[in-house]
Computed example of a mutant assay.
Amino acid sequence: MNKTILIVDDEKEIRELLRLYIEKDGYSVIQAENGLEALKQAAFARIDLAVIDIMMPELDGYQLIKGLRERSNLPIIIVSAKTENHEKILGLDLGADDYVTKPFDPLEVTARIKAQLRRYDGGAADSEAALLTAGELCMDVSACTLSFGSGTIPLTATEFNMMKLFMQSPGRVYTKQQIYEAAWQEAAIVDDNTVMVAISKLRGKLPGDGAVSIGTVRGLGYRLEVRI
């Protein structure tokens, strides 16, 4: 099925530039000039991935991400002129899966779109187990869900991939580079803060009793720890 990409930016020139490159790769495109219009589009159309600016009228990108995350775990890529590190951290913390700063190379954006869609759709190879467990955590790889007891833990696409990596080998230590490449499905090209922020948010979603947690191995990386 053809994928549909939602482009949200108040600058028509940027929307059109991205549209040309994205459609060239065979995707369909829906455009919105602000966050409010984007939420309306998402309510009536099947969206596979969203490319979102931050500074927009009506409803800014941060509020839009919150609104989308309430109804979907679709991949979200921020494309923004905000280059400060704390802005990137905020965007990722709210649920974005990737962050590209303006001015950008449209080929880089389309490459990141492909990577996010591969990761989101390609979850499990045929040889992988359909279910992964760690303590009372259970991941259904095919359905892209993580549950604890009778409840479901909502995850973004990036968080799901990170958690899948950890649950495939509980106790194994993974470096930040390994985690980034598994979660974002591309070579590690960002600073350590990206992985640290993502791990911090993922930790906040795990059960609070500490039975299953993500531990830090100083100087090496992170591992999934299961208390017996």
Rank of each mutant, 00 (worst) to 15 (best):
G151I: 15
A198L: 15
R119K: 10
A115M: 04
D98Q: 05
A182H: 00
G149T: 07
D105S: 13
A115S: 12
S150W: 09
S127Y: 13
P106I: 10
V173R: 07
W184R: 09
F104K: 08
T101L: 01
G151L: 14
D105W: 03
E128G: 03
G171S: 05
A125D: 09
L165V: 08
T152M: 13
Q116F: 02
Q116K: 14
R112C: 06
I113S: 03
R172G: 05
N161K: 10
A183N: 00
G123H: 06
F148T: 10
M167Y: 04
T133I: 11
Q185Y: 14
T156C: 05
Q116H: 13
D140F: 06
T145N: 07
P154I: 00
A96Q: 01
A143C: 07
E159R: 08
K102V: 07
L155C: 12
L165K: 00
A188H: 15
P170Y: 01
Y180M: 02
G151C: 11
E159L: 11
Q185N: 14
L165F: 02
T101E: 06
G123W: 01
C138L: 13
E159D: 12
R119S: 13
E181K: 00
N193H: 07
T110G: 02
V195P: 00
P103S: 08
A143M: 08
V109S: 09
D121A: 14
G149N: 03
A130D: 09
A129Q: 13
M139F: 02
